[in-house]
Amino acid sequence: MPEPVGFYTDTTVCIGCKACEVACHQWNALPARNGGQVPLSGQSYDNTTRFSDVDWRHVRFIEQFPEDRNGGRWLMMSDVCKHCVNAPCLEVCPTGSIVRTEFDTVYIQEPVCNGCRDCIAACPFGVIHISAEKHIAQKCTFCYDRLQVGLPPACAQACPTRSIQFGPIDELKQRAAERVAQLQAQGQTDAYLYGADDSILGGLNSFYLLLDRPEVYGLPSAVQARLPSRSVWPASLKAIGASLAVALGAFLSFGRRRDAVKATEGHTRSP
C-alpha cells in the first residue's frame, strides 16, 4: 500500500509565476476558459480569479499596501483542492463517483458522476465545478495518472521555487513545522500552518504556510469548513418533531370529528 501523500505549499517563497497553473493545464489537457477570451479582472495579476472546471490550480495575488504605497507586501499563494482527510464532497456524493485513492487523495471517477452537484454544495473551498464539455464534476485529480507511475504531480514538478512541495504527508508536515520555526526565529512571527493539524476536516492533505488570517487568502476557518453530516441527525430529529406535531394536529382534527360523529350516531340509535 503506498504512503499517503500530499502538497505542502510554502506561500513565503511563491513568486506568482503561475507555472503550476500552466503545468496543470498542459498535463490534464485543460482548455483555456471561455475559448481564451478572458477579460482582464483588474485584480492585480490574477486573471484566473477563481477555480473553474478548467482551472484546477489558482494563484492568488494579495496586495497589502497602504494608501501612500509606502511599505506593504505582496502575498501570493497557489491554491488547489485540499484532498481533505474527511472530505465533504466524498461524504455527500450519492453515486459513489468520488472516492479516496490508495494515495489518500480524493478523486472523481468520470464515468460514474451524473452531475447532481451535491459535491459543489458541500465543498467549503469552492473547488469543484461542472465541466462545460463533459457535464460532470471536475477538480484536481492530484495527477492520479502520474502518481500511479511514480511521478510527482505536474504542478509540484513545475514549481521553480519549491513553493509547492509534494511527498509523503508526514514528511511534509515535519518539513513545514521546521520552516515555521525557522521563519519565526527570523522574526516572521505571523507564520503558521493552515490545515496541517486535524482541526479542519480532520486535516488537509494539501496544507499551507500562511502569513495572514485564512480569510485574507480566501480560505475558510476551521469553524466555517464543516462536515455536511454534522447536521443530518439534528435536522432529522427536528423534522421528526415537526412530523409528530402535524400528526397530532391531524389526530385532534379528524379524531375529534370522528368522536362527534360516533356520539351523534349513538344518540340517534338510542330509543
Binding site: P124, G126, V127, H129, D212, E215, V223, Q224
Partner: peptide
C-alpha cells in the same frame, strides 16, 4: 488588490461555489 472582505459572520462560509 485589497484583501477579500471578511465574511459577515464567524460561521458563515462565503468561499463556496
Amino acid at each position: 488588490m485589497s484583501p477579500p472582505s471578511a465574511p459577515p459572520s464567524p460561521t458563515l462560509n462565503p468561499y463556496v461555489a
